Simulated scan of single mutants.
Amino acid sequence: MTFVPTAEKLMPELTTREEIALLARALWREGYNDHLAGHITALQPDGTLLCNPWLVRWDELRPEQVIRIDLAGNLVEGDWPVPLGIPLHLALHAARADVTWAVHNHPLFGTVWADLGEIPPIYDQSSALGGGGDLVLVNEYSGPVNDAATARSAVDAMNGGHLALLAGHGVFVLGGSARAVFQRAVALEQRCQRAWHVRAAGGTPTPVLPAGFLNHLKASDGNGFLGFWESAVRAELRADPTLLDPR
């Protein structure tokens, strides 16, 4: 008998709220764990956004705590407050129909490179798995971080890309699914971590992977690695078997 892997065989069917809660928890384990910081948004067919609320850490988020907001940042559904700094996501979803999922947080190594104002090289294949074109450096501080005009200029500066270091701030990862943004976010932090270690060890600044290989991965939409996201989901459900139980 031949095993044909499908997402349905590898994990339970999930609602978007469940995906957001699982994504938050899985990314927390991957270093996206700056206390109350960070936003995850998922664009819905009616033009609203589902997102994590303010005041709930990513490692404790549950599906029933996920809120719904409109593109003006108003709370439409839920009983938790709208997260601070959400204008970056509002500007993104208003401007780019190609993006349905967005993740922002301050992982350690991604934030270090953002603080340096440098794009880290890719040294190994795991660091390249995110796809999404070129990583760009965006200086979004032309005004306050919760300012709509500043947010629009930051989105424009991404120039259609899906991976960004926000100078002196953190990272911004975009995609078309929870699977895509999880893979891209993990690969980005691995890229930043390993580039830092190579530099600290006095290694070469010249990447060793073939250009053709890197260009192939850059063209990925982040959805091709079946099992990467699904295994993370299973790990979270083992850690908290009640996570998908209604409350």
Score class of each variant (00 low, 15 high):
residue 227 G to A: 07
residue 210 P to K: 13
residue 155 V to P: 04
residue 103 V to E: 04
residue 117 G to D: 07
residue 247 R to L: 13
residue 12 P to I: 13
residue 148 A to I: 11
residue 5 P to R: 04
residue 155 V to L: 01
residue 110 G to M: 05
residue 222 G to W: 08
residue 95 A to Q: 05
residue 86 I to W: 07
residue 61 L to E: 00
residue 146 N to M: 13
residue 160 G to D: 08
residue 174 L to A: 09
residue 147 D to Y: 08
residue 93 H to G: 06
residue 90 L to P: 06
residue 172 F to K: 00
residue 36 L to F: 09
residue 219 A to N: 05
residue 97 A to V: 13
residue 62 R to A: 08
residue 64 E to H: 11
residue 24 A to N: 06
residue 176 G to T: 15
residue 211 A to I: 04
residue 183 Q to N: 15
residue 51 C to K: 08
residue 23 L to R: 10
residue 103 V to A: 05
residue 141 Y to V: 06
residue 1 M to I: 06
residue 106 H to M: 08
residue 109 F to S: 02
residue 109 F to V: 01
residue 193 Q to E: 14
residue 225 F to Y: 13
residue 230 E to G: 08
residue 32 Y to P: 05
residue 215 N to F: 03
residue 212 G to R: 03
residue 71 L to A: 03
residue 200 A to L: 14
residue 156 D to S: 10
residue 230 E to Q: 11
residue 42 A to N: 10
residue 225 F to D: 09
residue 72 A to M: 13
residue 64 E to A: 11
residue 130 G to R: 02
residue 113 W to K: 04
residue 159 N to E: 15
residue 5 P to E: 10
residue 146 N to R: 13
residue 31 G to W: 13
residue 196 W to C: 05
residue 221 D to L: 14
residue 153 S to E: 14
residue 150 T to L: 02
residue 167 A to D: 08
residue 13 E to N: 14
residue 116 L to W: 15
residue 117 G to K: 11
residue 247 R to F: 12
residue 135 L to T: 15
residue 65 Q to H: 00
residue 209 L to R: 11
residue 58 W to E: 04
residue 51 C to N: 14
residue 240 D to F: 09
residue 22 L to P: 00
residue 24 A to R: 06
residue 124 D to Y: 14
residue 83 P to I: 02
residue 60 E to V: 15
residue 53 P to Q: 12
residue 162 H to Q: 15
residue 141 Y to D: 13
residue 22 L to D: 09
residue 133 G to I: 12
residue 156 D to C: 00
residue 143 G to N: 14
residue 123 Y to K: 07
residue 115 D to A: 14
residue 114 A to W: 01
residue 51 C to G: 11
residue 245 D to Q: 15
residue 184 R to H: 03
residue 208 V to W: 08
residue 120 P to I: 00
residue 197 H to N: 13
residue 159 N to W: 01
residue 6 T to P: 02
residue 176 G to N: 10
